[in-house]
């Protein structure tokens, strides 16, 4: 039997293969939910969760490094603040029409993808905040777990 000097990271080959096939689809589905938030069930929060889950999926299957290479902790922390600020800026821009949170963009035809004014933009901001926020919570818990092992 060949001894691996490197510690085996992640789960078995089956899990890794399936993950490789599905993780992109999960991410795409999350983005779909976010972008269609104003015309179908779902929205920023649900979509953001699904996006975060795709990264967490990656981390479970391939180990911590694989996921952190794509989105590091520092970047996650910055993106989280950016998402929240973006949401606040959209709300404040409503002042241009006289009210906080005013839907100041042309609302378009109902049930079109490009409609509903600021709602899709709000959804995107929320998705960034929620997705990255959940991912950072997961990272923190994982790091805590690994620290305890050492």
């Amino acid at each position: 039997m060949i001894k691996n000097d490197k510690k085996e990271v992640g789960m078995t080959l089956i899990v890794k293969t399936i993950t490789r096939l599905t993780v992109g689809l999960i991410l795409l589905f999350g983005i779909y939910i976010v972008l269609h938030g104003h015309i179908s069930p779902g929205g920023g929060f649900a979509g953001g969760l699904i996006i975060a889950l795709s990264f967490i999926h990656l981390m479970l299957a391939f180990g911590r490094e694989a996921a952190l290479k794509r989105l590091s902790e520092a970047k996650a922390a910055i993106l989280e603040s950016v998402g929240a600020l973006l949401f606040l800026i959209i709300a404040v821009l409503g002042f241009t029409g006289g009210y906080f949170f005013l839907n100041f963009i042309n609302k378009g035809k109902p049930f079109n993808l490009f409609s509903a004014g600021i709602i899709p933009l709000c959804n995107i901001a929320i998705a960034i905040k929620v997705g990255v926020g959940l991912f950072s919570i997961f990272i923190v818990l994982v790091i805590l777990q690994e620290d305890r092992k050492e």
Binding site: A77, I78, E80, S81, V82, A84, L85, L88, A91, V92, F100, F101
Partner: peptide
């Protein structure tokens, strides 16, 4: 009235974004 919420929330997120430095 909305400024009470805007200023405090804005400050919170700006600090978490740039305050590390």
């Amino acid at each position: 009235l909305a400024l009470f919420i805007v200023i405090s929330l804005g400050a919170a997120f700006l600090i978490s974004l740039f305050g590390r430095k």
